[in-house]
């Protein structure tokens, strides 16, 4: 049977059984998860997943059924068909990417993430993962950003620039290459 893939997000109050309900709903529609990522923030559960259903299954049926299942949890559903998205053409020469981890930490002040993400966008650096925490008692924060950096960008200069421009506000930046972090984290052959 030919399958069609969608990308789905569900945000709902975090209660035991929500994932079971969601998985059951997909099963009832003849579909299933392909790739899935789940996160819990405060009392909310959120999931983003690539899902697939029989090509003949109508999109409205899928949405209505999942919404019905999620209703007891107060869930919001968004279902997107990647085929409908306008994407940039792939570059003729593939862009080589190096992955880095950027950790920023220090005194909490508004606008830090905005400035950093804006600077990354200027350089064409994709932020592929992000997690941040704030310690209200201490008034400090820390965020880690996973970066996909096109080869050729001077990351040392960028790192220095970030420390220079935001260091006066008590923000420090640490930059690590992914292969270095992987090397020190696991014993797999290099």
């Amino acid at each position: 049977m030919v399958k069609k893939q969608y990308v789905m997000t569900v945000m709902a109050t975090n209660r035991v059984g929500i994932l079971a309900a969601l998985a059951t709903a997909l099963d009832e529609l003849g579909g299933g998860f392909v790739d899935v990522s789940l996160a819990i923030m405060r009392q909310y559960f959120t999931i983003i997943a690539a899902v697939e259903f029989p090509e003949t299954r109508d999109t409205e049926v899928i949405v209505d059924h999942i919404r019905a299942v999620c209703r007891p949890f107060g869930g919001d559903l968004v279902l997107k068909d990647p085929a409908n998205e306008l994407l940039l053409d792939d570059p003729e020469v593939p862009v080589l990417i190096d992955n880095y981890l950027l950790r920023m930490s220090g005194k909490d002040s508004p606008g830090v993430l905005r400035r950093v993400s804006f600077r990354m966008a200027q350089e064409g650096i994709d932020i592929t993962d992000l997690y941040g925490e704030r310690d209200d008692a201490a008034g400090v924060f820390a965020s880690c950003l996973q970066l996909a950096v096109p080869r050729g960008i001077d990351v040392v200069r960028l790192h220095q620039e970030l420390n220079h421009s935001l260091g006066s506000q008590g923000i420090a930046f640490e930059l690590y290459r992914n292969d270095v972090l992987q090397a020190i984290s696991q014993p797999a052959p290099l």
Binding site: G132, E133, S143, V180, S185
Partner: peptide
């Protein structure tokens, strides 16, 4: 997902 992304407040890399 690297451990740093799970606990950025407490994680720190060794000086290498």
């Amino acid at each position: 997902r690297h451990a740093a992304l799970a606990a950025p407040l407490t994680w720190s890399a060794p000086p290498l």
